[in-house]
């Protein structure tokens, strides 16, 4: 097991290098002038003859391998260029917006994981009965409903009908308080609590409800389907029959014997879940005007803010690779068949 984990960790730099190569290749679709924007914080500098000189100065006509090496070097020094959409360096923008996104994803994963596992188990136990059918129909609806349509419906219901809150991350009145207070994590729910601002905390929480509900509704079909099919598979095993025949209560059979084994594929799926949530979050943040990474990326894409979207791609892909690595390691640690071999 240690061998496997060590090999996976040693492979990490290779995968990251591959990622950077793919992104670098995609960047070659841009003209040197467009790539120049990564270095310039003042767009007026791009006019006139100065441009040619700047292209020359930053070596954007150099051979590709030279450019690639220089680009990697820049990344290692935390220099990803300047994002014109939010008027700050890309690294700053990522640091500003990532906590908001993380907050959203963390809150959404709670109902997705626990709700998905619970409903999946329920459907498997009542296989082919009414509960099972209802759960399956719900799952296929969540799966067929595009995230942005679900988001728009949630927006119409929560804001239009119930008038609970406007879109955004926090109400306007709370902004000065948030600006004044001390930031520990950048996640407003935690920071407001640590600062003792309960009024603002409740406001932040209310703003989270609709985006979190949307993101979880479109994501939980995956966990539910996998739990259900894996539970069905496990319940057919001989040791389950043994457990039942020795008189164990059904509750114990399900919880201790079946579900623990059935959850192993679910762990693998959580990597997929992260990927789908990263995608979903882009849409959800845009619909609810929730200022996180995804919102920033969409604004950047609309305004051709190349350094921003390249930085966004690089950050997200790296994040996903690391999450998947952790999932794989967890998988090995959890599964005794692999752990003990």
């Amino acid at each position: 097991m240690i061998n496997y984990i060590a090999r996976r960790i040693l492979l990490l730099p290779v995968v990251l290098l591959g990622l950077s190569l793919v992104i670098f290749t995609m960047m070659q679709f841009l003209t040197p002038t467009q790539r120049l924007t990564a270095f310039i914080s003042d767009p007026t500098k791009l006019r006139g003859e100065a441009r040619e000189a700047l292209i020359e100065m930053h070596g954007l006509n150099d051979p590709l391998h030279v450019q690639y090496a220089r680009w990697l070097n820049n990344i290692f020094h935390g220099n990803l260029g300047y994002s014109t959409t939010v008027s700050q360096p890309v690294t700053h923008a990522i640091a500003t917006y990532f906590p908001a996104t993380l907050e959203l994803v963390l809150f959404a994963s709670i109902p997705v994981i626990f709700g998905g596992i619970w409903l999946g188990t329920l459907a498997a136990r009542r296989h082919n009965r009414l509960t099972d059918h209802v759960v399956r129909v719900l799952a296929i609806t969540g799966w067929s409903l595009p995230t942005f349509v679900a988001g728009l419906i949630a927006l119409a219901v929560f804001y239009g009908v119930l008038d609970w809150f406007p879109p955004g991350r926090v109400s306007t009145w709370a902004l000065p308080i948030i600006h004044e207070m001390k930031h520990y994590t950048g996640m407003y729910t935690i920071d407001t609590l640590l600062n003792g601002e309960f009024g603002v905390f409740l406001n932040v929480l209310r703003h989270l409800i609709a985006p979190v509900a949307t993101l979880s509704f479109v994501s939980w079909a995956l966990i539910l389907r996998i739990t259900r099919s894996s539970m069905l598979e496990t319940l057919r095993q001989d040791y389950i029959t043994t457990a039942r025949s020795k008189g164990l209560p059904e509750r114990t059979v399900i919880r201790r014997h079946a579900r623990r084994n059935a959850l192993i594929p679910v762990i693998t799926a959580s990597g997929l879940l992260m990927a789908s949530m990263i995608g979903g979050q882009v849409v959800v943040e845009t619909v609810f005007n929730y200022k996180g990474l995804g919102w920033w990326a969409t604004e950047a894409a609309r305004q051709f803010d190349f350094p921003a979207i390249i930085g966004f791609a690089l950050f997200n892909a790296t994040l996903l690779v690391i999450v998947n690595l952790l999932v794989d390691i967890l998988y090995v640690v959890v599964d005794p068949r692999i752990r003990l071999s």
Partner: peptide, 24 residues
Amino acid sequence: MRVVDIFMAFPFIVAAMVLATLLG
């Protein structure tokens, strides 16, 4: 297969959005 792994490391919608923007 390693190339496949690397392409799969990108979240699909993020990669498609970025590439489509870069292509114009």
